[in-house]
Amino acid sequence: MVRERILACAVELFAANGYDATSVQQVVARAGVTKGALYHYFGAKEDLLFEIYHSLLADQLARLDAIVARKADPATTLREIIRSLAETTSENSRAVAVFSREASRLDEERWQTLRAEWRRYQDTVRGIIRDAQESGVFAAYASPEVISWAIFGVNTSMPTWFRPDGPKKAVEIADELADFVLAGLRP
Rank of each mutant, 00 (worst) to 15 (best):
M1A: 04
E4W: 02
I6F: 01
L7M: 12
L7T: 10
C9A: 04
A15C: 02
A15E: 13
G18L: 04
Y19C: 01
A21C: 08
A21D: 12
Q25I: 09
Q25D: 01
Q25M: 05
Q25Y: 14
Q26G: 00
V28H: 06
A29Q: 15
R30Y: 08
A31T: 00
G36T: 09
A37F: 15
F42R: 09
A44T: 15
K45T: 01
K45Y: 07
F50A: 00
F50N: 09
F50M: 07
S55T: 13
L56W: 11
L56I: 08
L57Q: 10
D59Q: 15
R63S: 04
A66S: 05
V68D: 02
V68G: 03
A69G: 12
P74L: 05
P74N: 09
T77M: 03
T77E: 06
I81A: 08
S84G: 05
S84F: 06
E91D: 15
N92T: 03
N92P: 05
S93M: 11
S100G: 15
E102R: 00
S104R: 04
R105S: 07
D107I: 07
E108S: 01
T113P: 04
R115D: 07
E117H: 12
E117R: 11
R120M: 02
Y121C: 06
Q122Y: 04
V125T: 07
R126C: 10
R130Q: 09
R130W: 14
A132K: 04
Q133T: 03
G136P: 08
G136N: 08
F138G: 05
F138C: 03
S143P: 04
S143V: 02
E145K: 13
V146D: 11
S157H: 14
W161M: 13
P164E: 15
A170M: 06
E172H: 10
A174E: 02
D175N: 03
E176M: 04
F180P: 00
A183Y: 06
